[in-house]
């Protein structure tokens, strides 16, 4: 392993911790989407680092493009859902969305 790849893995681990912590601690739906976005960035960082480390950057780039497309579409559809929730409940607080609770 090169020093650069180790730095990449450590940075990705820190990003994953930030993302998961925010996912658990926050109650705002928009912030939850943001945490998912940060987790995706961590994955992107590892893929690009691995592509560079193994010398298969072209393959890594093709995976990156797939990830970016899926990430964007997930975010757009999820934003639409959040907006729908806001329209129905006048809030994006997850503690107030309990209509389906038994």
């Amino acid at each position: 392993m090169t020093l650069l790849f180790i730095l990449f893995i450590i940075s990705a681990a820190l990003l994953i911790v930030v993302g998961i912590y925010s996912l658990v601690a926050t109650r705002n739906l928009m912030r939850i989407l943001l945490s998912i976005e940060i987790l995706t960035k961590a994955v992107s960082l590892v893929i690009i680092g691995a592509g560079y480390e193994t010398g298969k950057m072209a393959a890594a780039q093709s995976y990156m493009i797939t990830i970016i497309v899926i990430e964007v579409m997930l975010l757009v559809v999820a934003t639409g859902i959040v907006f729908g929730v806001y329209k129905n409940t006048a809030s994006i607080d997850t503690t107030k969305i309990n209509d389906l609770k038994g």
Binding site: M1, T2, L3, L4, I6, Y52, M57, A58, Q61, S62
Partner: peptide, 22 residues
């Protein structure tokens, strides 16, 4: 302990064209 080389950059090898791969 897994650090093999202090060289920051690996030998840059771009195996194949990204467009061909995609």
């Amino acid at each position: 302990p897994h650090l093999n080389s202090l060289i920051p950059y690996a030998e840059a090898a771009n195996a194949g064209n990204e467009m061909t791969i995609i």
